[in-house]
Nucleic acid binder design. Structure first.
Lengths: 168, 168, 168, 168
DNA sequence: TATGAATGAGTCTTCATTCAT
DNA sequence: AATGAATGAAGACTCATTCAT
């Protein structure tokens, strides 16, 4: 049973990424608290979804931090990137799915910042001759996140076991 | 030729792919008819969404047909595939987004059939030595549709002009 | 059973003047319609209360119009005023009770206009020597409406029969 | 001397007379205590409102006592009455506003007793020839309290400065 | 004793759906 | 056949109230 804010938020994230239209009732029940308590913790559904998005974004950003994208061999960096973010793929799936509903620029800006960091890595790889240059680095970054979200959904739908998700 | 039903369905598809939770009211207004008429044409919201999905799937299947994936050079076939499906990317985005809501096996089966056709193409390319073999063909197919959906969303969000979507 | 907007509004006025905190449910039941229909007719509770206030104000204004306050003997005019407004006393009670909740200036302005018309009558009476001048005409007007609201409440509480309300 | 209870009660009276639908939360915050403590002091909202009404009634009664209505010149007595009760006008406004919600006979009886005392004064004045006899003394009393409540509201709404409320 | 945390009950509001015209 | 009007069901939100600390 979830007792504090962040733990409720994680539960909500799990429910919402499977069912974007989940009712507050369902989320509250999944967290083991009552609807009223959920409403006391988060003032309104919008706030809850928004904070869930912000948490997902923080998790993704932290994963990027841990991969130290700007250091060492680009190929190794991409490998570290994949290993770091794939466990968070469900967050990427949630953000991609709800993406169009976030009006707040905070999340959009954070997304763009992440995009830029990954694009910078691909550009570095292209400049160093390690990666092909047939596509703009920005597109590679976009595609990377599309694939990541795809993995997240595949895990959610049970088509892909979480343990084996880490690609080789 | 678009009958009345199909033309309403196309409008519904457009609205629903931009806003999956759109109310019947919005859809009806976008189609220029009243809610009641919309309900007469489709018995209930579920039926409407389901038929929209079926239509999207038909469109995607037709695109695959037109690409003649099993003929000629695999590289050229992939190119034909991309050119054929990218104009239908929004349908892929809709199907991917709503995907988890379709309980009916009809659509899931159709999706798997499409998946199999694309996977077969990649496998043919791998066998002929034209494509790399580092990843299973099934994964390549999955990734292909993830990217396609990504393109569809990018177009919807205005980040990518429809005309320039066709990658080279 | 009430069928159109104005008739529903009158019913709502009756309920609200007896129970300012009456739920939409009660109002709808009193009008013989469902909550949902009530919500279709008036977008939200605030709108309903506001329109009820506007209607009450219109009724009171019309009563003042019919009394032709600026014509003839001031004493006779006051008598006509009393006879015209006392049947509408419940509206005055409603407006006085809810008064503090109306943020919209429309109603406040209308109230001040009514106040001014009555004050003008008292002033005319004072200038003509027919009325005493011990109190400012503005105070007499204020007191007049206080008494009118008092009559409205007395009728609502059954302490005063509507027929006998017209004072002599 | 104001005990804890009475001081909270006075605060509650102030809040409730301005906003009859004020939540327990607001009242508690205005009193500088927590909701839970407020609930320990008064068992339920109804009890709080009821006790507030009883306190208001006590204050009004005490004001009447201090005016010694049954002694001396009726005209002077009315003047003393006005001076005594006008500072308590907000209590009269509260009682008039909430009046219809009090089911308990205690308050209604007290109100009638006050009514009777004021009516007796007017009757004494009429019998002594000091007041006109055009209206029944009971009506004069009713009107007196209506006007008093009107003054209370005017003060609350800021239309009338407390200091200048005492009419001449 | 006083309080932050939790909740059941009730209100407002919306939506998919039906019906009379 | 098409529509405006009406509604039951369901969701978001609030509030008075209780309880563990």
């Amino acid at each position: 049973m979830a007792t504090d804010r962040d733990s409720v938020l994680l539960t909500a994230l799990g429910v919402l990424s499977r069912q974007p239209t989940a009712a507050m009732d369902e989320i509250a029940r999944a967290a083991g608290i009552s609807r009223a308590t959920l409403h006391r913790l988060f003032p309104g559904r919008d706030a809850l979804v928004h904070e869930a998005g912000a948490l997902a974004m923080r998790r993704m950003s932290a994963a990027l931090d841990s991969a130290a994208l700007d250091q060492g061999d680009p190929v190794a960096a991409v490998r570290r990137l994949a290993e770091a973010v794939i466990p968070e793929a469900n967050f990427a799936a949630f953000l991609t799915g709800e993406g169009r509903l976030f009006e707040d620029d905070t999340i959009n800006d954070a997304w763009e910042a992440m995009d830029a960091r990954v694009a910078a890595l691909f550009l570095r790889g292209q400049n160093s001759g390690a990666f092909r240059v047939e596509l703009p680095a920005a597109w590679l970054s976009e595609a990377f996140f599309d694939l990541l979200a795809g993995v997240g959904w595949a895990v959610q739908e049970g088509r892909l076991a979480p343990a084996t998700a880490t690609t080789r």
